[in-house]
Structures are given as structure tokens and as C-alpha cells.
Amino acid sequence: MDYLTVLQILDSTVRLATPLLLTCLAGLFSERAGIVDIGLEGKLLVAAFMSGAVAYVTGSIWLGLLAGVAASLVFSMIHGLASITFQGDQLISGVALNFLAAGLTVVIGQSWFALGGRTPPLSGNGRFGEWTLPFSDAWSKIPVFGPTYSELISGHTALTYIALIAVPLSWWVLYRTRFGLRLRAVGENPSAVDTAGISVVRLRYMALIIAGVLCGLAGTYLASLAAGFVKDMSAGRGYIALAALIFAKWRPWYALSATLIFGFLEAVGNRYQSISIGDFVIPVQFMQALPYILTVVILAGFIGKAIPPRAGGTPYVKER
């Protein structure tokens, strides 16, 4: 395996990790505020569909992005209505949203484009262009550093850089602002926050709005990367992001490394059908299942303990 192959695998790792990272951060905000969000998958899917559809019709992925974020926000607000306003079961609401997304995208897609639930292929401005960072040509001759810079660091779409910036930003918001402190408190002990005269309902809705926007970005990224929407294109990424969130123990920087690990696993799995170590062959199915197996192992507490926000999953009922 030469250096260029390594670079290519790392490059596709970044590509595959981007939607995971955005979705994982979405889940991070929502779960830190005490709202468990199984519906990440569904939000990803509706965002991918709406952005793909609008980007095709208008020819602009940026308008598509707006539509994708809007669709994801609508789903987020339904989740809020069910789990915050009506104090329903957050898990059940999330499951329902995933089904709604899986069904609606195909039913509406078929009605709009009659392509069996696909959108027509996106091209030109219908997709995000790759950003070539300055000097990437000039420096590409420099050994080791040059190719790393031009292949790995440069040449991604805007959303990849946004996702990477979102990590320190999320950290700063959660740990260095008053809003973040309250958000984390509402996920641990909502009645204390309520006692301090701060609205639990408002904070939780804010968290869901942030989650909706981030999922919208992730979904649009998927549609742009695949040049159009395809039925079920999120393909479990929402669940992998949820797994990454547990892996990351609900922390932004860990989320970056967790999603990079899962992205790397996927990149390796895509490139090599099966890997042989000596006489032993690791089947491709094992590589596909690895993120899920790792999550179970982490959850079981065999490698460090993952402790979720304490108030997660329970609706807040004000005392009367």
C-alpha cells in the first residue's frame, strides 16, 4: 500500500465522516437538552430529498440547502410537539418520524418526478463545488506534505469545512456560553432549571432547532455527494451517528474522532471487499457491522463507561 492509497482512503474517510459528524452534533445538542432523538435518520432523509428536489428544480444547491434545512426543521418541530408539548414518548416519536420520512420521500418523489422515488440527477450548480484551498497546486510538489495538503485537506465541499468548524463552535456554545450551560442543565436536571425561572420548554425547542439545522446540512450533503436523491439514501447513517454519539460520550471533540473512526471503517469497507490477515479473512459483513458492535461494547461499559444525560428520554412535567 503506497502513500497515495493511504491518502485516498483518508480522503474518502473525511467525505464519509462529514454527514455523520453533522448528524452526530445534531444528536449531541438534542440529547444534551434531554431529548433523545432516534429520528435523526428520518431528518437526514427528508433533508436529502427536499434539497435534492429543490436543487434540481432551481438548479442551485444553495436553495436546495435552504429547503433541506426547512424540511428537517419541520420534522424536528413535530418531534418537539410530541415529546415536549404533549409529553409523549420520545423514542416512539422518533421511530414514527423515521417511518414518515422513509414513506413520504418516496410517495412525494414519485408524484413529483415519476422516477420511482428518485430525483433527477443534479449537475453543475445543483451540487456543491469542491473548494480548492490556496497554494494546493503550488505546494503539491513538496514531498509528503504537498500531496497531503492537496489531496486530503484541500478539495472538499463547503459543508465539510462547515462541519469541521461546527465542532469547536459546538464546544464553545455548550461549555463557554450561558445558553450552553442552561442547555446541559436542562438535560441533567430540568426541575432545577425551571426553579431558576428559565423555561425548560423553550430551551428544549432551541436544542431541537439546532439539531434540525445540522441534520438539514447533513442531508443536503448526502444529496449533493450522490448527485441526487435516491430512496433510503441515508442508509442507517442516522443510527450510526447515534452510535457515534454514544461512542463520543456526548462530547463535541470526541464526536469528531468517533465519526472519523466510523467514516474510516466505511471507507476501508468500500475499498476492500474483504481483508485478509495471513490466513484469516475478515468478511466484508463484519466490517459493515463493526460500528454497531463497537457501540454495543461501549454501551456495555467494557471500554470506559458511557453515561448519557440524566434527564434524557423523560418528558418534563411541571409540578402543580
Partner: peptide, 23 residues
């Protein structure tokens, strides 16, 4: 009408009977 309409109905049933019970 695509078969996926059933998944929509399924989602709506879960949403209304499960999560929106209090409504």
C-alpha cells in the same frame, strides 16, 4: 400510488397512537 404509502400510514399510526397520545 407507491407502496411506501403504507410506511407513511404506519408512521402516522405510531405517531398518533404512541407519541401524541396526550393530545
Amino acid at each position: 400510488i407507491p407502496r411506501e404509502l403504507i410506511i407513511v400510514i404506519q408512521g402516522l399510526v405510531i405517531m398518533f397512537t404512541g407519541a401524541l397520545d396526550n393530545m
